[in-house]
């Protein structure tokens, strides 16, 4: 079973932006918030050259890696074609404006 941890309030993540969660046993995790207030979590390493995805531009349900512009899907961590690669994703839930992460 997953282990849900409270991380922050939803408002602490900017819309179309992200925050980094440190200190998990899986390493740094990037939390993304879309324009529609959905929150996603990915391992903060691009499958291409390990760029910090948390520093990318969020658009729709994707993030563009800041290093070489790969687009990664927020929901499943898959690279958008024609690029190929995947990055681990984590379950997130938002309850009463609080963000919980399954780590």
């Amino acid at each position: 079973m997953s282990n849900w941890k409270r991380i922050c309030q939803l408002d602490e993540i900017p819309r179309l932006g992200s925050r980094v969660v440190q200190g998990t046993k899986s390493g740094d995790i990037a939390l993304f918030r879309t324009a529609a207030d959905q929150v996603f979590a990915l391992h903060d390493k691009c499958p291409h050259k390990s760029g910090p995805l948390s520093q990318g531009i969020v658009h729709g349900e994707r993030v563009s890696c800041p290093l070489h512009g790969w687009n990664i899907r927020l929901d499943d961590g898959q690279a958008v074609a024609p690029d190929v690669g995947s990055c681990r994703s984590f379950a997130v839930s938002v309850r009463d404006g609080e963000v919980f992460l399954a780590v």
Binding site: I7, V21, T24
Partner: peptide, 10 residues
């Protein structure tokens, strides 16, 4: 300043 402050698992 928020973006510079990492979140931590409580």
């Amino acid at each position: 300043v928020r973006q510079f402050v990492p979140l931590r698992v409580e």
